[in-house]
């Protein structure tokens, strides 16, 4: 594996091996060892052309625990925001000797453009591209689900996961639908019809407009963030009505199955898609998702950057 661009081109066995590696790395981090020499001397660039503090610091922590040198190249104050082309940025990173570029970008396909171009030779990790995919988020979500509900197993066979909210604009939803179904889980998308893409019928998931009818049967409820700007774009009448049909509040949580969990990729709109009681409840694994994010991203960097000299043909 040279790049991580999408869940679509990740095989089930590659996905399981990343989760297994993350599992061992989490055990290392749990213990006394906080830093591993694994990627000493390697340079990892966080190229964040779109604001996302949590994803960036998660990748940064992962890289640093593996002793890589981390360079943060973020939109604010960098040339990316001054209209420099992706090509020029990539060639700059190449000139700096980046072994891997972790890219967050508002354009769908930006990570793939970077990987397919001849502009740079390092590994590319997609840390979220437009409304396309966010593979590391899906991997950390699958890791969290497996840890809670399928400890000791390889995959998620037999579980049912509801993904609730703005599926249309969500890269987290796209990656999770592909990964969770690949790992054997049944996925139900719950959203207003306006926030589901045309073509969703081709996805490995079923669709429901009725949250209440779905909630008693699922093992995992994964809430998606509703962007403020959707309010003004005719997707639903107003926040109150959205909350009434698709928000997860304490009342709805009561009908959840024994042992089921609540997830959210963050940042949350408390009171809109999720109520404070739910977010802070015992079912919520939201802060744990953040912790697991670091282990999963360590695993991704480990898998991509070991043997990289082999793939680059310099051996």
């Amino acid at each position: 594996m040279r790049h991580l661009l999408s869940i679509e081109d990740l095989s089930k066995s590659d996905a399981v091996s990343i989760l297994d590696t993350a599992h061992e790395l989490a055990r290392v981090s749990d213990g006394a060892v906080k830093k591993l020499p694994t990627l000493r001397g390697r340079t990892i660039v966080n190229l964040f052309a779109e604001d996302s503090t949590r994803t960036r610091i998660s990748f940064e922590a992962a890289a640093k625990r593996l002793s890589a040198d981390v360079i943060n190249f973020s939109a604010k104050g960098s040339s990316v925001s001054k209209g420099e082309s992706l090509k020029d940025t990539a060639m700059t990173l190449q000139a700096m000797g980046a072994d891997a570029v972790v890219i967050r970008h508002s354009a769908s396909g930006a990570a793939q453009r970077l990987a397919d171009s001849q502009w740079m030779s390092g590994s590319v990790v997609n840390a979220g591209d437009g409304t396309h995919e966010h593979p590391s988020q899906a991997l950390l979500d699958a890791f969290t689900i497996r840890k809670h509900l399928r400890a000791g197993a390889h995959d998620l066979e037999g579980l049912t996961v509801a993904i609730v909210g703005d599926v249309l604009h969500s890269r987290v939803a796209r990656s999770n639908v592909l990964l969770l179904s690949k790992l054997g889980a049944k996925v139900i998308l719950v959203a207003p019809p306006t926030l589901l893409p045309v073509g969703v019928e081709s996805w490995p998931a079923t669709v429901s407009y009725d949250f209440d009818s779905v909630i008693p049967f699922v093992d995992v409820v994964m809430m998606l963030r509703v962007q403020q700007e959707r309010m003004s774009d005719l997707y639903f009448p107003n926040a109150r009505e959205y909350s009434r049909y698709f928000g997860l509040n304490a009342d709805r949580m009561k009908s959840m199955k024994q042992g089921s969990i609540v997830m959210h990729p963050g940042p949350m709109n408390r009171g809109l898609e999720i109520s404070a009681e739910v977010a802070d409840s015992a079912r919520s694994v939201i802060t744990e998702q953040v912790t697991n994010g670091v282990s999963v991203r360590m695993a991704i960097l480990y898998v991509l950057l070991t043997g990289s000299a082999l793939e680059a043909g310099s051996n």
Binding site: E8, G109, R171, V198, G199, S202
Partner: peptide, 16 residues
């Protein structure tokens, strides 16, 4: 809009 709205745009996350 970026490309034909359908199965492919849904997959690629490009506006239909």
């Amino acid at each position: 809009s970026q490309m034909n709205e359908g199965i492919v745009s849904a997959r690629l996350g490009l506006k239909g």
